[in-house]
């Protein structure tokens, strides 16, 4: 049996506002196996980023985790760790790349120094030459030329900066990399290069990957398994091909049909307000989750 890198059990997140409490994530459960890429698909407001932030315990106030467990490597429940213990896990076991990662690089620091910073914060003092060689190798791994080593962020293009961030995230060989819309702000060709880099580095370091996004086309390239999220609920999970070719939940069907293609002309469908509201309403009631075929789970909602 393959081991689980991440096991999320009944995770709920709420945002408190002065008027009411909003449940952004409503008791979702999913697992990621060793070496697997899980794609979490959702549109704006579905709770996908909130989920990622809750797993990393990076939720900003007024957001708070109300219940659930997030078990890493079959042993630690991330939600029970103290800040201090959490520090040890972050970046060494769990790493994050977001859409805006490339903008978080320090503009006054050379690339090698920035990567070294992250490494030194978690590891003991290292021999400088060894460290430099290690960083050089990291950059090579993400396909960046040697000159990047001593360049500043403004000298790099968006795609290159994003690859620097991937190198940083991979620098301590984490077991799970969470990529939240890693390519959304990039052009098509650059998107492919960054996606390629992600897949490549995942293979090499034998990491697991949680990719979050709204672009099913991109998910189809990256993920082994997908989970479809709407209104803080996962309505369908299963192997990528299976979900794309025989989507079971109404919302998944609409999403797949709405995806334009360059391979064939089709009449695109879209979700009208009534249907959208009907789906939202149906998710408010308790529902059962049924296994249609092996590993393909669907929420049975009316």
């Amino acid at each position: 049996m393959t081991s689980k890198v991440l096991d999320v059990k009944k995770l709920s997140v709420a945002y408190d506002t002065s008027l009411k409490t909003i449940q952004a994530v409503k008791g979702i459960s999913f697992t990621i196996n060793q070496g697997e890429t899980l794609g979490l698909i959702g549109e704006s407001g579905s709770g996908k980023t909130t989920t990622a932030m809750a797993i990393l315990r990076l939720l900003q106030k007024p957001g708070r985790i109300t219940s659930g467990e997030v078990i890493l490597n079959n042993s630690t429940d991330l939600l029970t760790l103290s800040e201090r213990e959490l520090r040890k896990v972050r970046w060494t076991e769990l790493a994050l790349v977001t859409q805006g990662s490339m903008n978080s690089l320090n503009p006054t620091m050379r690339i090698n120094k920035q990567i070294a910073d992250g490494i030194l914060a978690h590891r003991e003092k290292q021999n400088r030459d060894e460290l430099e060689e290690y960083i050089g190798n990291l950059l090579k791994m993400v396909g960046l030329p040697e000159r990047v080593f001593s360049q500043y962020p403004h000298e790099l293009s968006g795609g290159m900066k994003q690859r620097v961030c991937i190198a940083m995230a991979a620098s301590l060989n984490p077991s799970l990399l969470i990529a939240d819309e890693p390519t959304s702000a990039l052009d098509v060709i650059t998107q492919r290069i960054v996606a390629q880099t992600l897949m490549d580095i995942k293979e090499r370091l034998n990491m697991s990957l949680l990719v979050i996004g709204h672009d099913i086309g991109l998910m189809a390239q990256l993920a082994d398994r997908v989970a479809v999220m709407i209104d803080g609920v996962i309505v369908e999970t299963g192997a990528l091909q299976e979900v794309l070719t025989s989507p079971q939940h109404l919302y998944t069907q609409i999403l797949v049909d709405a995806m334009p293609s360059i391979k064939r002309k089709k009449s695109l469908t879209s979700i009208d307000e009534q249907t959208r509201q009907k789906i939202s309403k149906s998710l408010l009631k308790p529902f059962e989750v049924k296994e249609v075929t092996q590993g393909h789970w669907v929420a049975i909602t009316q």
Binding site: G143, P145, E155, L156, S157, G158, M160, V188, I189, Q191, R192, I193, A195, Q196, D200, D215, I216, G217, L218, A220, Q221, L244, V256, M259, S261, I262, K263, R264
Partner: peptide, 25 residues
């Protein structure tokens, strides 16, 4: 050609890797 080959579709997976050109914008 390169652009169209990079569009992610749900019908088929990308074939191989595309070459990374080493140019800043």
């Amino acid at each position: 050609k390169k652009l169209i080959a990079s569009i992610p579709t749900i019908e088929e997976k990308w074939e191989g890797n595309i070459e990374i050109s080493d140019t800043s914008v």
